[in-house]
Structures are given as C-alpha cells and as structure tokens.
Design a protein around this nucleic acid. Structure first.
Length: 468
RNA sequence: GGCCCGUUCGUCUAGUGGUUAGGACAUCUGGUUUUCAUCCAGGCAACAGGAGUUCGAUUCUCCUACGGGCUACCA
C-alpha cells in the first residue's frame, strides 16, 4: 500500500461526537497503516456558526482520544494555515482564475427568489434546480446589478450533458450525470467560500490523496471532481463509508444515543475502549482482541469496510470498556479512578479496594457507589437493603457480630458457625450478611470484601444492622 | 418530485450459485459461588418481499417496500 495522505476536516460548529470520531479514526488508521500522513483541517467558513471554543475542543478531544495528526492546527505543516478562515487569499487566486476562464459567473438571484422558484418547481412536479438565468447574462446586465449595489454569489458552470465517473474504493464505480446537478455556488455573497469549493481545493492543495468521509457526501463528490478538473488540480481517491446512525436508525443525535467526546470523557470511558468499539462498527475485525491504535491500524483493511449503515450500540461499547478494565494494571486503574476515590477512608488501602471491585465496575460512578455503600452511607440508604435487614431482625446480626469477632481470619468457618447458630443457610444466610456489611445486594466475594474493610468496620456495620 | 446509497440473528457482522448460514455483544439456561455480582459452559435467534436467470438461489438481474443521503449563500 502506498502512503496515504488522509484527512479529517470538521467544522467547528459543535462538539465532536461518536459519528465524527469514527470518521476521524478510520482516517487515522488508514494513514498509519499505509505509513502515510493524517492531516487535520478546520473548516470554519461559516462565520456565524463557527466558534473558536469548538475548534479548540475538537483538537483537545482528538488528542485525548489518541488520534494524532501530523499536519494541522497547533503543530503546523507545509501550509500557512489549517484554518480555512485564514486561507482566503489562496481561494481568491482560484476565483480570479475561474472567473477569467468564464468557469464561474456571478448570480444575483436572491435567496428569497430562489426559495420561490424552488417551491414553484416542486409544485409543478419538476426537480428543484437553479434555473440558470444568470449563466448567460450579458456584461451590461451584470454591470447594472453591481451599480445598484447588489452583491452576487458565484456559481460554477457545470459541464453540460457529461457523465462523471469515479471509483469509490469501497462501493465501486459510481456515475452521475451533470444534468442531474445544477450550477452550485462556490462563493457566497459575503465573499467566503462554500464547503463544496474550499473543501475540494484544500484537499488537493494539501496533497490529500484519499478522502474517506461519510456516505452523505457521495453525491457531492461528482461536483467536487468537476471543480478540480476545471482547475486542473489533482483528484484524490474516495471512500464513502456508510453512516453511523442512532439506535432508531435516524442520523446520530443527542436524543438517539450519540455521545460527545466530552461526555465520554466525563462518564469515564477509556479512549482505547472507544476506538476498539468504533473500529468494529462498519468495519470487520475478525477477532475480539483489545488493541491499541497501532495494532488496530495493522488489522484495518479498506476491503473490510461495510457498505450498509450501522446503529450505535452502547452495550457493545461498554463491553470494550470492561475489556480495558480487565486488561490494565492496578496502578493504571487507580489513577483512572483517582478523583472518584477521594472519600476513601485513609486506613483503607487504595489498591486493595480497586482490586476488589475491578470485575464489578464499568465506570468510575460504579466505584463511587461501592465506596459510598461500603464505607460511608448508612445501611438504610438503599431500600432493598434496609428491608432485608429489618426483615431478618436484629437477633441474627447480634449473633453474627459475635461469631465474626471470635473467628476473624477464617471466613468459611465463620459463615458455617453463623449458619449453625441462626439456622439460616444459603441465600437466607449470605444475603443478610452481604446486605449489612456491604450495604448492597450484590458485589465481590464477601471474604475479599471484609478483608479490605477490616474487622472494626465490619463489626460496626453489624451493630448498625441490629439496631435498624 | 429527481439523482444516489443501503437492507443477513435484537445489535455489530462473516459467508457462499449447492453451508447444519459462522462469530461477537446482548439475552436465556446450567455450573462455580452454602448468596448475588464476577467467572466458566451451553442454548435461542437472521438472509425485507415478489418476479426472473438457473438443475439449484441468501448469493446474479429486475421490480416493490422500508431506511438514509444529496437536491442550502450548512458542512
């Protein structure tokens, strides 16, 4: 595989979410795998919606996820700027050239007029398309509008009756007729470039040789190819990946399960869990190995990219999260949980506690729950626990307390004695003990729990239970 | 409306002109735990529908349905 120069080019109008992230990841994997370069470019051409805070967040989020770029914001590269808002002089040269060659033309039809035209076309059962009234306007007509102070947009003169064919590396050959497309706008009234223009030009100027993007861009591709051809610019290869949808099949949004990187971070997801999940959505990896980004890139394969859309599934994401928790060291786990463990009593060994709950947690919040229930919250803070303890009666706990104190260090003997003394066995024996000591109805093996808690604390718990 | 993309277990997916249609996650059951969780083992579960091509189609073709995209002075 020859080195690919891939790119990710978000517009800073919001936070990065699982869908964008997947596209970014695939581009990174492609670059690493081919020994190429991953470029980050900020497409902030929409002045009203673009915000600096978002472009900063995008960079932070990608870095946190371990998706590093070799050219782009913060680190620079061959280009003067990787923010499109700072590249206007470059675009100006192309506009000049295109205008001179009569490949673009000014159009004075206002947005309101366009809306009306479109509505009428729809009503008449015609395809809503720019009617091309300004395509062949005379110099005089144009002068007249300019004199009136009217500002034009510029449209690209799309070649007539041509078929544009390109090969999508995943979907195969795609063909579009220019008669189904219209003269699209390349420059807005405020002189800023449109996506269709700046995106295609920058890809080419930056030497991007593979454009891996969402399926939603598929029908933009012939337009961009036509534009690049008109400018004699290099045309990259294309991969359009099927969309990643919400659990209802609709485009990914907050209400159908998408999470922003910010939220993922707050919930406590490991970047590694996220990339292992994401690299298996719409892309096949035949085994269930947990991998780092380099290992993922080596099993990444364009031919394994699927053509059909996939739905987000948090249980699968969480599976990878648990898989990371299983695989890392106690030290790493402890530092992951650091801020969640602030309330852990000083006399409790942090690593022992973390080791104890490791198999029973998915997120830091789960660790907090154990911490609170084991060491802080009173026994009546969870209803089921309180009910069970009251139902069992204080007699049981008084007996248990004495036996545990006398036999500390031999848990199986302890439980046997409590069973004999109280007549309880099985569930009726273990659940009240578990409930009173741990404040929960489920959790790790009891002998391990009491070891971490210590005799004093366990006895205090039993006393609390008998006086409930 | 036009153009385009897509449709295999609940989910992510593998796969082939003849297969017991495979795996993973979830779920269910059993085992371990004198309890629950964890862990381990096993089970359930799918080719959107209709035509055609063919000795034979889940696989190839067409149509329909459904989902999605583009058709923006958003990207």
């Amino acid at each position: 595989m020859s080195p690919y120069r891939s790119r990710f080019c978000p517009s800073p109008t919001g936070l990065l979410h699982l869908g964008n992230l997947r596209t970014a990841l695939l581009n990174v994997l492609l670059a690493i795998k081919s020994g190429g370069t991953f470029i980050l470019r900020i497409e902030d051409t929409d002045v009203d919606r673009s915000k600096t805070e978002f472009s900063e967040a995008v960079c932070d989020d990608l870095q946190w996820m371990g998706l590093h770029w070799q050219e782009g914001p913060r680190i620079g590269g061959p280009e003067d700027s990787y923010y499109q808002s700072e590249r206007n002089s470059i675009y100006q040269d192309f506009y000049d050239k295109l205008l001179e060659e009569n490949q673009i033309y000014p159009c004075f039809t206002s947005e309101e007029e366009l809306k009306i035209i479109r509505r009428n076309q729809m009503a008449a059962g015609e395809p809503p398309r720019y009617n091309g009234i300004w395509a062949n306007a005379s110099k005089e007509e144009i002068e007249e509008e300019l004199e009136k102070g009217n500002k034009p947009v510029y449209r690209f003169r799309l070649p007539k009756d041509k078929t544009i064919i390109f090969k999508d590396l995943v979907k195969g050959e795609q063909s579009f007729h220019t008669s189904d497309l219209d003269d699209f706008i390349v420059r807005k009234k405020d002189l800023s470039p449109t996506f269709m223009f700046a995106n295609a030009i920058d890809d080419s100027l930056m030497g991007v040789n593979v454009v891996l993007r969402g399926d939603d861009h598929l029908s933009n591709t012939p337009r961009q190819i036509a534009l690049l051809k008109a400018l004699n610019l290099e045309i990259p290869e294309f991969i359009h990946v099927a969309l990643f949808t919400g659990d209802d099949g609709a485009p990914l949004s907050k209400r159908n399960g998408s999470l922003s990187v910010k939220e993922l971070k707050e919930i406590g997801y490991f970047p590694q869990a996220v990339i292992n999940y994401l690299s298996r959505v719409g892309h096949t990896i035949s085994d269930n190995e947990l991998r780092n980004i380099h290992e993922l890139s080596s099993v990444f394969n364009i031919g394994n990219i699927s053509t059909s859309p996939s739905k987000i599934d948090h249980t699968q994401l969480n599976f990878w999260q648990k898989s990371v928790i299983e695989s890392i060291s106690i030290e790493e786990l402890s530092s992951w949980l650091e801020s969640s463990l602030e309330d852990l009593p000083k006399d409790v060994n942090k690593d022992s506690f973390v080791g104890l709950i490791r198999d029973n947690i998915t997120f830091p919040a789960d660790a907090v729950r154990y911490l609170k229930n084991l060491f802080i919250n009173p026994l009546d803070s969870e209803k089921e626990v309180e009910d069970l303890i009251k139902q069992t009666g204080s007699h049981f706990f008084k007996i248990a307390e004495k036996i545990i104190e006398d036999n500390w260090g031999d848990w199986s003997k302890t439980m046997k004695l409590i069973g004999e003394e109280t007549g309880a066995k099985g569930k009726n024996l273990f659940m009240p003990i578990r409930a009173s000591i741990t404040g929960q109805l489920s959790g790790p093996e009891l002998d391990q729990v009491i070891e971490v808690m210590g005799l004093e604390r366990v006895l205090r718990r039993l006393q609390e239970a008998s006086s409930l």
